[in-house]
Write a protein that binds this DNA or RNA. Structure first.
Lengths: 184, 184
DNA sequence: ACCTGAACACCGTTCAAGT
DNA sequence: ACCTGAACACCGTTCAAGT
């Protein structure tokens, strides 16, 4: 019997259950059940559970648009801000991005290239560009995690707008630091 | 039969297996086996697996010393740098800190109070202090994650010394930004 | 209060077999 | 190439029972 399953369908179903129930709630058997298929049918489209989770995470990043601003500093900021917003829309997944230290799939590489292009036009190259990109990604994903409900004991929860403003401020500090002393 | 088990012993055994085999490798049954005890004996000292993981993470932070510098800016930096180093020494755990967005146990609260004290002496109070503390923690844990082997595709791995220098630079950018415009 | 034995309801993954 | 049925070796957790 052939169910006509696609890898995309598997990833999409996994993303749905992951967004709803978190990573802990994701099981291959649950995904298979949602697709009306035997548990091990998943293995025809994906190597193992880890690969499926990676595919889901990278797929989410496809929603981050290419920057349109001509000014490289604004373009760089828009990449980070759009990533922040996309991650917030999938709050249940943010922790997993952090645990897996981001994604290294094709979508993540696409965004990495866009960031490098902005940094290059800002006069930042070589190891400084690599370090700067790292800092920006860490900061963006980390802040998205904060925004999804991380409040310390006895501390009143901040509004999403407030956290977003703090994120924007920190982003400016970082970009300023990264580009300080560069030629352009 | 009484095995004379202590909660501390359970947490210590869990920390050992977690450090060696990562979070995925941690199972209550493995911890119990290492202690020579029945699997469900763990439940006499810990509510469930999540509570055990939280206890392990918080326990690691006990190794971060109280800052000794009198200058609050230097004291703040030393807290973050010591945290970074402690996390690096337990590389297998860093991802879990990120996924759980840090720790909220007594040790984490101790460090949070020390950070607030430094920020207060730097003239940073209220929501700016809360936002600044958040940014510093996110950045520190995130960078520790980077240092434990996060290198992008086709990018040559950086030396630990190099990553640490980048971390220190980013830390300075953040602290400068947080304290900019404050009264002291 | 602390621990065991036994069981329940799950997992991810493999393997042979079918089409 | 894609999918199923059945099985293997695990899980976390609960419950009654023992001391």
């Amino acid at each position: 019997m052939r169910a006509g399953l696609t890898r995309d369908q598997v990833v999409a179903a996994a993303q749905r259950t992951m967004t709803e129930r978190g990573v802990a709630g994701l099981s291959l058997r649950a995904v298979a059940a949602e697709l009306g298929v035997a548990p091990n049918a998943i293995y025809s489209h994906v190597a193992d559970k880890d690969a499926l989770v990676d595919a889901v995470l990278d797929d989410v990043l496809a929603a981050v648009p290419e920057p349109t601003a001509r000014d490289p500093r604004r373009a760089l900021k828009s990449i980070m801000i759009d990533t922040y917003d996309v991650l917030l829309a999938r709050a249940g997944l943010v922790g997993t991005y952090l645990a897996r230290q981001g994604s290294r799939g094709p979508e993540a590489q696409r965004l990495g290239r866009a960031m490098d292009d902005c940094l290059l036009r800002l006069g930042v190259t070589g190891s400084r560009a690599a370090g700067g990109r790292r800092a920006l990604i860490v900061f963006t994903i980390g802040y998205a995690a904060f925004a999804t409900g991380w409040t310390a004991e006895g501390e009143q929860p901040l509004s999403p707008e407030r956290v977003r403003r703090d994120f924007l401020a920190g982003l400016d500090w970082l970009i300023t630091g990264i580009t300080a002393g560069s030629s352009v």
